[in-house]
């Protein structure tokens, strides 16, 4: 129970740090990194609340797995856009 609470605090802390960084940084790479940390924090909160008497609920686990795979696609697309923005500025 205390372990779950520790992980819940950790998840909320990750969300807090990532949101703060997203709001204060103008650096595109750090923003993408912040988005990743934010998603991991949300996944952590989701997984902690999936805990029950008979183990961890499979449905939120599947959501989280889907989220991780979608996130890597989003990260790659955002990085490509960021690189393109840099090129457009140079031209």
């Amino acid at each position: 129970m205390i372990s779950d609470f520790a992980f819940l605090i950790s998840g909320a802390g990750l969300i807090c740090l990532a949101l703060f960084r997203l709001a204060t940084s103008a650096d595109l790479l750090m923003r993408v990194l912040g988005l990743n940390v934010l998603a991991i924090g949300i996944a952590m909160v989701l997984l902690v609340s999936a805990r029950g008497a008979e183990g961890t609920d499979a449905v939120p686990q599947a959501f989280t797995l889907t989220g991780i795979v979608v996130l890597v696609g989003v990260t790659a697309a955002l990085l490509a856009l960021a690189e393109r923005v840099a090129e457009a500025r140079d031209e």
Binding site: S3, D4, F7, A43, M44, V48, T64, L65, V69, V72
Partner: peptide
């Protein structure tokens, strides 16, 4: 590692490999 402790080894594997 912490997701492994939370009883979600499938997600932990995906996070280590992909995330």
């Amino acid at each position: 590692l912490s997701w492994l402790r939370l009883g979600a080894p499938d997600v932990a594997l995906a996070e280590a490999a992909i995330g």
